Simulated assay, not measured.
Amino acid sequence: MKAPQSPANPCEQALAAWCVRWDFQAQTSAPVAVAFSAGADSTALLLASHARWPGRVTALHVHHGLQAAADDFESHATAFCALHGIALKVERVQAGHATGESPEDVARQARYAALARMGQEMEAACVLLGQHADDQAETVLLALSRGAGMPGLSAMAERFERHGTVFGRPLLALSSAALRAWLTQAGHAFVDDPSNADQRFTRNRIRAVLMPAWDACFPGFRPMLARSAAHAAQAQRLLDELAVMDVARVGTPPDIRAMQSLSRDRQANVLRHWLRTQANVAASTAQLDELLDQVAACTTRGHRIHLKVAHGFVTRGGSRLQFTPPI
């Protein structure tokens, strides 16, 4: 009589499909890193990666130092990797936030910086992240609640670069329920972060209140939101292509008179692209509207432009706009 087979890890098929889409098969010998929080999603992804690339995978664990349970997460990650013969790297960061800063944003920035450092140290071809369909849906809802434009509505990309490191998200089509069901059935332990239940954080409120309501009204809504995010991402890529063509026309930094020859919508697209690529800042809707008005009114040599955008100022320098960061 045959022994019952273990259920198939749904992450393995998702990971294989991601590798095909992004031509990751070419990376035949480089190590692969997996961000491993010890939670359910990263545990399932780590096991799938280890099965696909045995001996080439390293788990990267970031200890944020923000809660007492962080030591337990690290202990679990260490024991889990030792049990499965997976290499583990740990980096401790101080992710405390200053007054006026979002604790979620600060912790996320510290985490990505640490993952990039560890990935570069081991010369990893890619750092894989365990965000799934629920995370993607929450990101879209969060963007909608903030009145975000195309970049925000595009939600999370399957592949992106940050801090000089390639990151991948192979699980965006898989639900949290599917991952947890497999882990439970297969007998793999994972930890639950108690801070995920703290509804002082916006994303947690979306998860606890909005997501169940959407599920009740629109069962199976997650793939639909993911599809909308994919459409928004495609539209943003086209806007970026148009911006590159228009930047070739108006120059960098933008020539004011050349800008005035474009439609207001194309001017807005150029300004967003210029500010993002040259200064790594984004103007608010109100700031961008005021800047467009200033550009339209700039018809005399002595016209002055001086407008706060993000943490700096857009000013007029001769015939062109310029961005001046704070001193």
Score class of each variant (00 low, 15 high):
A69R: 13
Q131T: 13
H132D: 15
I86F: 03
T58C: 10
A137G: 10
A137S: 14
H50Q: 14
A137D: 14
L46W: 00
L141I: 09
A98N: 09
P54K: 07
A70L: 05
D105I: 11
H50Y: 05
E158K: 08
Q136N: 12
E101N: 02
L60Y: 09
E74L: 09
V62R: 00
R146Q: 15
C126W: 01
V90W: 04
F80C: 04
A68W: 03
L66H: 10
A59K: 12
F80E: 01
L46K: 01
D72N: 07
Q94C: 10
E101P: 05
S49M: 14
A59Y: 03
A48W: 00
W53R: 13
C81D: 05
M156A: 08
E158Y: 07
L142A: 15
S145F: 11
L129A: 04
A51S: 15
R111W: 06
E104M: 09
A125W: 03
L60D: 02
T99M: 08
Q109H: 07
E121D: 14
L66V: 12
P54R: 01
A82K: 09
H64D: 05
L128K: 12
A116T: 09
V140N: 00
A59C: 13
D134C: 06
M156N: 13
V93Y: 02
R146A: 15
A137L: 11
R159H: 08
A98E: 15
S102F: 10
A114I: 14
M156Q: 09
